[in-house]
Computed example of a mutant assay.
Amino acid sequence: MTETNTSLEAPAMDAITGKPMPKPIPASTLVIFRDQPGSDAPDLLMVERSAKMVFAAGAAVFPGGRIDDADFEFAKTLGHADFDEYGARIAAVRESIEETGIAVAVEGNLDAKRVSDARHALHQGTNLADICNQFDWQLELEKLIPFSRWCPPFAEKRVFDTRFYMISHDDHKAQATVDETENYNLFWGNAQSVLDRAEAGEVKIIFPTKRNLERLAQFGSFDEAVAHVKDHPSVMVSPHIEKRDGETHLCIPEGIGYPITSESMDAVQRGFKK
């Protein structure tokens, strides 16, 4: 009798259409906090993506992007056994420099000219590892605090497996500037103010960003956010569809730190155009 081979996993299927899911693209995002003296809430750095982008076109998001092979290789070179995790952290640092001109979790000479030169080199295709060697920079990757991880079970044009990290950056002299390629605007604002702007139609935010901003709006400082994460460690968030009172909702699990866990599909802003 021939034994059936069950070692191969069946491909994941779209939760709505039943179509096979594409392999998720690893991505990394960084929530950069800037505590404001005398304020009830810290500012967060947001970038508004170009309308020409395939994913989240025109939306306000946290700085981030896909993880490159070079990020994983750099993690291995630095001796990290969990190169998936540390490659993601390296990508978050790299994307922050590329998209905003802000260098976080970097030890070394960070004068404005040097960071600008590093940013230009990254845009020209130079690896962050080579830049760190050239500028005598050391990465302080333990400063990045895992916040959450999202991967939707829907067969979109592209599916991203995105790790979200938090970091404090209270250098008010460091000027964030747009890269004029992937984003056309950036701004600092506390989480609730971004939600209010979205409600007023001034900015667009997609479902994961909205849920994360609602969670971040609970904190009066970076330290409060860190304490919260200790009680609610980062887990994979995979939204699902539910019928509630005759209405279709996009939902996430309860009990993982999010104050609001569902939204009517009629109101949901997703990363790709419907």
Rank of each mutant, 00 (worst) to 15 (best):
S262R: 13
P63N: 04
D223P: 07
S96C: 13
C251K: 03
R270E: 14
D40F: 02
T248I: 04
P11R: 13
V203I: 15
E242R: 11
M53D: 14
A59R: 03
M13S: 10
A56K: 13
P11A: 11
E214P: 02
S193Y: 15
A57Q: 07
T17K: 15
E95P: 06
V61W: 02
G87R: 01
Y86A: 04
I102S: 03
A105Q: 03
I97H: 00
N212F: 10
A75M: 06
A27F: 02
E214L: 10
S39V: 02
G38P: 01
I131F: 01
F272D: 06
A91F: 08
I206D: 15
D14P: 03
M13H: 08
C151S: 14
G101C: 05
K274H: 14
K204H: 08
P42S: 07
I16T: 09
A41T: 13
E142C: 07
A12S: 11
A15M: 09
V178I: 12
P253S: 02
S39Q: 10
E254C: 03
A27L: 06
P11L: 13
W150Q: 05
E9S: 11
A191R: 04
V54P: 12
E48F: 02
V203H: 00
V106N: 00
S168M: 14
A155Y: 00
G271E: 09
D35C: 09
E107W: 00
N185D: 14
